[in-house]
């Protein structure tokens, strides 16, 4: 066997040729460095004094510079509760909103994957029309919003049937699914101010409730979309036999379907959790003192004296650690779960 051949051909189907292995591991290690270096830099920056940052790069603690815990002390001791409060807020908001989004989203996704919906186009147009009229009435003519809402709802219920008789076109599940997904397209800047006014009207500004409700909604589309693909690939036989045995839909859903979709739930849940945990723009709008979350605190370290890199680094590390821990815990699910269902079955 020539050397070239031995280098380029694998010994068996499940292994790689020596040359291939070098290339593959080389690529993996290279990318590991790309991933790790910024994290390393954050970690050592959290141990630097301002002068270490401003006077040029130093790379190795104890060799290039003497690490100092001043930033950690500032975040944990000086700020103390001012760090703890946003941290708790972030944890509560991210966990609760993820749980809610997962529950509501997978119910909707399951429903869309098993039933045929056919909302009348006419009802939808009517709904939009009444909504617009309501806004104009409230904004333009000073009608109290709850009166407008009640009137609009009553009109809708009255007219929906009539409208449905005159216009028979209807939409399908695909349209509903896409409508839900399209909510994710909505840029937060479009919605932020009206949402602020909404929460202000009901007196919920700067509460965790407001953030939880908002995050649940903005992440719903992702849950519905990803979970829909999972449910579609789960065979219906089990459910049908359970149904024949007299199990209710609720029992089937919670008892049979959800456990089967566990990898998908975990993977989608983790993704949604990360999105909620890291969200910045809406948190900035909706929170000030009490409900402030970690990303706002991170961004806030940019002050007139320049970004306080050392404090910022500590906060970023504090934000990454729990998520890494969670990922390690759940990692075997993620592999299976990130499939989006589409290739299963």
């Amino acid at each position: 066997m020539s050397v070239l051949k031995r280098l380029t051909e694998p010994k068996s189907l499940d292994s790689m040729s020596p040359l291939g292995a070098v290339l593959v591991y080389g690529g993996l290690i290279l990318w590991s460095m790309v991933v790790l270096f910024p994290l390393y830099w954050i970690a050592i920056t959290s141990l630097k004094l301002p002068i270490h940052v401003s006077a040029g790069p130093v790379y190795l603690p104890f060799v290039d510079f003497l690490p100092d815990l001043h930033a950690w002390r500032y975040i944990f001791v000086d700020l103390g509760n001012d760090t703890l409060r946003p941290y708790l807020n972030s944890i509560v908001v991210a966990l609760v909103s993820t749980a809610l989004a997962m529950l509501i989203g997978s119910m909707a996704a399951y429903s869309l994957s098993r039933l045929e919906f056919a909302p009348r186009l006419a009802s939808i147009l009517l709904f939009l029309l009444l909504g617009a009229v309501m806004i104009v009435a409230v904004a333009g003519f000073g009608v109290p919003w709850w009166i407008a809402a009640v009137v609009a709802l009553a009109l809708f219920l009255l007219l929906a049937r009539a409208a449905g008789r005159t216009m028979r076109a209807s939409l399908g599940n695909g349209d509903i699914l896409f409508w839900i997904i399209s909510q994710r397209i909505l840029p937060p800047v479009v919605a932020a101010l009206p949402i602020y006014v909404m929460f202000q009207t009901v007196g919920l500004l700067d509460t965790r409730t407001a953030l939880i409700a908002t995050y649940t909604t903005v992440n719903l589309p992702i849950v519905v979309w990803l979970m829909y693909d999972f449910f579609v690939t789960i065979p219906k036989d089990l459910e049908e036999s359970a149904s024949l045995d007299g199990a209710s839909r609720f029992a089937i859903f919670f008892g049979i379907v959800l456990p089967l979709a566990r990898p998908g739930l975990v993977a989608t849940g983790l993704l949604v959790l990360i999105l909620a945990w890291n969200e910045y723009l809406l948190a900035l709008f909706l929170s000030s003192a009490n409900a402030q979350t970690m990303p706002v605190l991170v961004a806030a370290q940019n002050a007139t004296r320049g970004p306080q890199w050392w404090y910022m680094s500590v906060l970023i590390l504090l934000m990454i650690l729990p998520v890494i821990f969670l990922t390690l815990l759940l990692q075997r699910f993620i592999a299976k779960g990130m499939l989006l269902g589409a290739v299963k079955g």
Binding site: L284, A300, N302
Partner: peptide, 26 residues
């Protein structure tokens, strides 16, 4: 005394939104 802090670029807008909408949490 409860000092609430937000990034510089957001102070103007934050105050205005809070006060002009009658929220008055600040």
């Amino acid at each position: 005394i409860n000092v609430i802090t937000v990034p510089f670029s957001d102070i103007y807008q934050k105050l205005l939104t809070d006060w002009s909408t009658g929220t008055n949490s600040i």
